[in-house]
Design a protein around this nucleic acid. Structure first.
Lengths: 357, 357
DNA sequence: ACGTGTAGTCGAACCGGTTCGCGCACCGTA
DNA sequence: TACGGTGCGCGAACCGGTTCGACTACACGT
């Protein structure tokens, strides 16, 4: 079932079969048909390893994901699906590699054993050793997210700073003066997680420019943490009337905490942020939020990667996406007086993240 | 940077380098060290395609997932992560392939181009053409889930029928007499989705054996559908006091619907089912449920696959997992009288799924 | 009739590894 | 000293494709 067998049965040489299949040289209609019928009969498919070895490319790309231990968020998972789809459209296969933790052998295989033609690197940190490693190995790659300084690196990212800035601005326009940011977990941000830092940056800029009161909450990525965080916030800073979030996994907890405090969205409390549209629409009421465009990000990253693979000398390119904020029903005018008065009084506590200014 | 270059610099033949690396023949300590130092200096790693071609195996396995269009559930995503982890532990790489929809080229590449040594096939349907295709191509594979008839096929599955049976039994023990099953979407079940059919089967058996009143709801996989489904149920069949579910994505909606109806879990309504533990614990109150053991399933499937690859003539093996039901706080004694009386009365509607008996 | 060009095909080399068979040097033993 | 065994290394063949250079046959223009 190899190319030699096909050649033998069709009464031609191996090279002719190869040319008939690839079209890289003209082959007469008669022999092409003869070869094709033999192939159809035997169900022959060329061996991928042999082809990769001869061509010097694998028609496979690597997708480096964070290790499963640090649970993937829905946003990330959406993205993985989108990448696989985009790759399938380009007739490429996807090799999955967790990195970090104890799985670095897998990453090392990816970069140095010519297993893939290029790499999409998720979850770039502000300082990221993997970027250096890929560049050293001259492996074409596109980052999802970008490090603090990026000399000539290709990446696609979402403009968290700008989006959170706009979210806060939107809240301020509605009259909110005391606003919180629900950031990701303290560990993640401390580890240099880009979106966390950039969301904070946009938040601070907005707060400063607009003369607001701002509180940042660092909150674990699950409903329980979200509930605790918001409960603490409402107890410690009852003046807060609105929240911007980049932590969608905490949303169910946010909802519960607000509910238990007797607050109705958006009458008593406004909520917005950067959230995968699926989650935004599943929320009650549906969230006014910037929809994460994971399909487009994946498609853009893939297109970029294909270009770099074709021409490795291409000048670097960055794509900073800024999806529009979809107006749904979770933000409204600030309540006339602080709702602190009408809430059952608990003893005030310091919110988890500490104040900002 | 190939094995010939290493050999040249170390002053030995290519075969000696190969043997030094693989250990397949003895090499003197002195030459081994010399070779190793050259390798370290140049950072040499053998080319994966060439090795695969020569050895006749790729050290890669394929993971066939449902296409991204039909959104992956958290359970499935957990499983993907677990598979990648298990593969990394065995020094195997994972090639991701969506199947179904218009991505069948990707699946075809997987089975017939010798890209992988074996396949893990997710989301097996009761009748599944991919199973036949894999068998025809003599590709070692392990199914997650199993088809209706499985002549000599390897698979790992969760005993949905048994688990749902036990859930219902548990509810019956608490005094519930009128119980609903929250199944997956009508389309999925109609397409022969195994867990849907087997959950139904276990539910019917329990209902019949225990002389209960049973209602099956077919419900889309998101919060909105969950909310509608339960709202309809409460309106049309107010006698129902407990629910077993295999549709975790609908849970947030279930919660909202119960809440809006003024029902408190578990005082007025009991909830249980088969749910990834993360979701079960995120729920308020935490769900009494059978935890999906995705880590163990992945590890088992991987172990099985490795064995089949080593010895393709192995007799078939099935693993039906039956994780224990974790008692948390979402089930309780049936309310004394039906809570229908104390609920605000809406006009009765037919529940989405229709009655069972 | 004779170069010239071109379409179609073949053989051989090559991609970068692994493995088999063989030869050489060295050992202990008869 | 001759001999069989063993440890170590070499060269060549092979895995299954792709591609390059060359060769043949035929059509064309002069």
């Amino acid at each position: 079932m190899n190319i030699g067998e096909i050649a033998r049965r069709a009464g031609v040489s191996r090279s002719t079969v190869s040319y008939a299949l690839s079209g890289n040289r003209p082959v007469s209609e008669a022999t092409r048909k003869r070869i094709q019928s033999v192939i159809d009969e035997l169900g022959y498919r060329p061996n991928a390893s042999a082809r990769a070895l001869a061509e010097g490319r694998t028609r496979t790309i690597g997708l480096v994901i964070p290790p499963a231990s640090s649970r993937l968020t829905h946003m990330q998972l959406d993205f993985v699906g989108s990448v696989v789809d985009a790759a399938a459209k380009a007739d490429l296969d996807v090799l999955l590699s967790p990195s970090g933790g104890d799985h670095d052998r897998s990453f090392e295989r990816l970069v140095s054993e010519s297993r893939v033609d290029g790499v999409i690197l998720m979850e770039i940190r502000m300082e990221d050793a993997r970027v250096d490693r890929l560049r050293e190995a001259r492996m074409p790659f596109v980052g999802i997210g970008h490090p603090a300084n990026d000399p000539g690196m290709f990446w696609v990212d979402v403009d968290y700073a700008g989006l959170i800035y706009h979210c806060v601005r939107h809240l301020a326009d509605l009259g909110h003066r005391d606003i919180a940011l629900l950031n990701r977990s303290p560990e993640l941000v401390a580890a240099g997680y880009g979106p966390g830092h950039r969301a904070r940056e946009g938040f601070m800029r907005a707060v400063t420019e607009l003369g607001l009161q701002g509180t940042e909450l660092l909150c674990g990525d699950d409903a329980r943490c979200g509930q605790e965080c918001i409960a603490d916030l409402l107890a410690g800073r009852p003046e807060v009337t609105a929240l911007a979030t980049i932590n969608e996994a905490a949303l169910p907890g946010v909802q519960r905490a607000l509910q238990e405090a007797g607050l109705v969205i958006p009458r008593d409390f406004s909520l917005t942020g950067v959230v995968a549209s699926q989650w935004a629409e599943d929320f009650r009421p549906p969230l006014t939020a910037a929809d994460m465009p994971s399909d487009q990000m994946a498609a853009q990253a893939m297109a970029l990667l294909v270009e770099i693979i074709r021409d490795p000398s291409m000048p670097a390119q960055h794509i900073l996406m800024s999806p529009p904020i979809s107006l749904r029903h979770s933000t409204g005018a600030a309540p006339a007086g602080s709702h602190a008065a009408i809430r059952p009084v608990g003893q005030p506590q310091q919110p988890t993240g500490g104040g900002l200014s």
